[in-house]
């Protein structure tokens, strides 16, 4: 299956004559060195990745890691310095103004950290804005918008103005606006960072629900590891504009690519993320092989009860094939180890 989104050696360098740097030895310099030498700042450094249709792809990094720049490069809200972005087989980086506008209108929508709502318009007209700029008639776009307003749980607030809503509700409007155009892909730029923790959890669940119901491809930017682990099918970790690691949540936690990532994931409750794949071992000689079976993708925490209840080690299956065993002690090591930290 072809990728929904494919990014190939994408660069963004801010500053004068930034296009002259790529390909020269200067491009190898660290961010701080380049800044002192040329006055330019690297936003995104040689980034390549693919996103499969229907996938939730999370880009994670601390502030200044280039993640917000990266997501803006995808629809050229910021012009890339070099590299290509391919969306459903179409080269975005060489698209004309009007092609690009068309892509933004029909294929990709974006949700912003600070919402970016129009304060002088009611909720319904904010949601319908994307349809309005496309030229959809007022009646039609209002009908569509009120459908979406219901979908994100804002029924009854159609005629309110943004400043009458709480932060969480405003972001629901932002979400509705992005969904109204029925795009194939949604981009989220730290959408929940400005919300308080309880609202944030609700909104995360909302996104999970919408993803289940609508099956859109999503690129999700965040600086919150818990959020990344919760939502992401795969996670890409950026540092100083460059990729540090791409992997599934359990891969990132179990096999951090370097100390930076290790530091990041050190506080994660591993038993909640790791699957049996990461704790199983080969059976020891003479070990009983008649214990219960569990699939290899089971989360460690969920296997604990079965492991304690059984005297024999649990047999771990990948399909029908036996790939290893895991006993009470192996599981306790994961759970206890993190309490020791």
């Amino acid at each position: 299956m072809t990728a929904a989104l494919s990014v190939d050696s994408l660069w963004k360098i801010f500053g004068p004559r930034s296009d002259k740097i790529i390909g020269t030895p200067d491009a190898e310099l660290s961010r701080a060195e380049l800044k002192t030498k040329t006055g330019n700042v690297v936003g995104v450094r040689d980034v390549s990745f693919d996103v499969a249709p229907g996938e939730v792809f999370v880009v994670m990094g601390l502030s200044g890691s280039g993640k917000s720049t990266l997501v803006r490069l995808l629809t050229r809200l910021i012009e890339p310095t070099s590299g290509t972005v391919t969306l459903n087989g179409m080269d975005i980086t060489s698209a004309s103004e009007s092609q690009l506008r068309d892509v933004r209108r029909t294929q990709v929508s974006m949700v912003f950290q600070h919402f970016g709502l129009l304060p002088h318009r009611q909720v319904i007209d904010n949601v319908a804005y994307g349809l309005e700029v496309r030229g959809v008639s007022k009646k039609e776009r209002r009908a569509k918008a009120s459908e979406i307003v219901d979908l994100v749980g804002l029924t009854g607030y159609e005629m309110s103005y943004p400043d009458q809503l709480s932060g969480g509700m405003q972001q629901r409007v932002g979400l509705a606006r992005a969904l109204a155009g029925d795009p194939e892909m949604l981009l989220f730029d730290e959408p929940f960072s400005a919300l308080d923790p309880l609202i944030r959890r609700d909104m995360q669940n909302e996104v999970i629900r919408l993803h289940r119901e609508l099956g859109k491809t999503m690129v999700f930017i965040t600086h919150d590891l818990a959020e990344a682990l919760k939502l992401g099918d795969r996670i890409m970790i950026l540092r100083d504009g460059a990729i540090v690691q791409i992997g599934t949540p359990d891969e990132v936690v179990a096999q951090p690519a370097d100390d930076y990532v290790k530091d990041f994931v050190s506080e994660v409750p591993k038993a909640h993320v790791l699957t049996l794949k990461w704790v199983m071992r080969d059976p020891r000689p003479g070990e009983s092989m008649d214990g219960p079976t569990l699939p290899v993708s089971t989360i460690v925490r969920h296997a604990a009860r079965a492991a304690i209840a059984s005297d024999a080690p649990i047999r771990v299956l990948d399909g029908d094939r036996l790939v290893g065993v895991v006993d009470e002690e192996d599981i306790m090591r994961v759970v206890v180890a993190e309490e020791a930290v």
């Binding site: 950290q113 700029v133 606006r177």
Partner: peptide, 15 residues
């Protein structure tokens, strides 16, 4: 005018 709003509405493909 807030740049976020401009960006958000630009990303809807306005002229």
């Amino acid at each position: 005018v807030s740049t976020t709003t401009i960006e958000a509405t630009d990303s809807a493909g306005q002229t």
